[in-house]
């Protein structure tokens, strides 16, 4: 079986994307962090490392809550998307 990229996997899911971001990160803290646990915790690869800093895109978020609890610096301000937005599983 061909290796599926995370983009391929997320592309089959149903999302209703909000204009408001439900997870915010404090980039200043991320720049000083050497662990970057968020990169490995997020099963949707929403966190990416660029120029020593972390960027976050919420569109593929599966709302699992992993990033909320792994950050040792509490740089992740985590909430759920507003009701009616975010992931909708068809199977689950």
């Amino acid at each position: 079986m061909k290796q599926a990229s995370i983009e391929d996997k997320l592309a089959v899911n149903k999302y209703t994307i909000d204009k408001d971001v439900h997870i915010k990160i404090d980039g200043k803290i991320c720049k000083t962090c050497d662990k970057h646990y968020c990169l490995y915790a997020c099963p949707a690869h929403c966190f990416t490392l660029s120029n020593g800093g972390i960027t976050f895109s919420f569109e593929g978020c599966l709302e699992c809550g992993s990033c909320r609890i792994v950050c040792p610096n509490r740089a992740v301000d985590w909430t759920l998307p507003r009701a009616g937005f975010g992931i909708s599983y068809q199977y689950g």
Partner: peptide
């Protein structure tokens, strides 16, 4: 908001098959 993968177009009967559930 459904991604294209979630529904099928039956070109024979010219109908869209909606995803179950």
């Amino acid at each position: 908001d459904l991604p294209p993968a979630k529904f099928r177009v039956d070109e024979q009967s010219k109908r869209v098959i909606p995803p179950e559930g």
